[in-house]
Design a protein around this nucleic acid. Structure first.
Lengths: 217, 217
DNA sequence: GGACGTCCTAATGTCAACATTCAGACATGT
DNA sequence: ACATGTCTGAATGTTGACATTAGGACGTCC
């Protein structure tokens, strides 16, 4: 009943800090991440920072070039399209595979918390955290390690894109989050694979549409 | 017209050598990859080997645990199911996105080479290399970097699984490769997204079935 | 003024020494 | 015999020094 206890190294720690800093806006898209600076700020060796940056590159949050350093990714409309088209395929598969395995009460609780927060005027960033946790729960339920890996490879990028969606698009996000996720729970409960797949994909595509409207003009 | 010239570091080099060794059977599934040994054999520092192993972990070929070293992945039926279900979703998306962009003559040439090799009694390993190149071509044509990344995250595992399919299953692979890929080209030419998606997914699932028949009994 | 070659600097790439952790062998006590 | 505690060796984790590279600043030549 006990999950294996995991120790962590400085690289994971560094990756966490840098990721949070990127989400927090300390390193805007396109900015350079210098290993020496990061090492000094985090008080770890450059080697550990390097390894941490490799983790973030795996998540697609940053990009490294030979002897040219690593930069935070850009957030162009094309990038959004790439990320969300892959995400749609993954969410479709995940939804299908999660039928009969997800803890529906846990999902409902998450949606209820979102609804409550929405009514109480909680900042959209917090709703987004619940949003992601909702999808994490589904992926975990599939117990498909490769699928979960593939999700992690876009998750941070999704997070970053959704943050800009929130920050640029006023209340558009708040207007749809709760309903869309509650609908997803309902379909998962009904258990029709085809319907779940289609809705999950549509859920992602609608997010993309909302985003591109704010990126291009 | 010129692609940017890419320099490479020792880490990529090390990753290539180790990957080839795994494919070649020098490190069977489950075996340990000791950094000191590898560093000595490759005549590079442990740091570079470490970074190379991180690359292979990104490809899903090996798995590392904190202070417990890295091992080559296992090839259980469950692992095959995980890899191929994700691959099916990706191939479906890739096929759809490649319509109208992929170089159909290049694909045809690949299939023809396969057919010729099949008739000439070329080893199945070579056919497999062409098989993978066929799919690489499709993914590249999509110009979707995230999709290509996701493909790279399963590609080496697919390679390894297909190698065991070849080595255990005598001529089952040779009997279907050419026809399936020629059919794929035909559908890509016709350009109906739904048909391409469905066939690409089925193509992967049939490979999974052939594989599980040889892994479980 | 523009094309070219030469430095110089600031960053990354590589390495070898040191620190830490794990897993098993062994001993001890009950 | 079993459980527990201790030790040890072999591996990984971490670090700081050194090597290499990219790209700009500068000067020269035409």
């Amino acid at each position: 009943m006990l999950r294996p206890a995991g120790r962590r190294g400085l690289a994971e720690e560094a990756a966490d800090r840098i990721r949070d800093a990127i989400f927090g806006g300390d390193f805007p898209p396109g900015s350079a991440l210098r290993e020496v600076d990061l090492a000094a700020q985090l008080d770890v060796s450059r080697g550990s920072v390097r390894e941490g940056l490799a983790i973030l590159e795996r998540e697609g949050l940053v990009q490294s070039e030979w002897h040219r350093g690593t930069k935070v990714i850009d957030l162009t409309a094309r990038d959004a399209e790439e990320v969300y088209s892959v995400r749609a395929a993954l969410e479709g598969l995940a939804g299908r595979a999660a039928i009969g395995r997800v803890d529906l009460t846990a999902l409902t609780r998450l949606v209820d918390t979102m609804a409550g927060g929405l009514a109480d005027g909680v900042p959209s960033e917090n709703l987004l955290a619940l949003d992601i946790e909702f999808h994490d729960t589904i992926y975990q339920a599939t117990a498909n390690r490769r699928l979960i890996e593939a999700w992690y490879a876009v998750r941070s990028q999704v997070y970053l894109f959704q943050l800009t969606r929130i920050r640029l698009g006023h209340n558009e996000y708040r207007a749809v989050v709760v309903d869309e996720h509650r609908q997803m729970v309902k379909l998962l409960e009904r258990g029709e694979a085809h319907a779940v797949t289609r809705f999950a994909e549509e859920h992602v595509h609608s997010a993309l549409r909302a985003l591109t409207e704010q990126l291009s003009p």
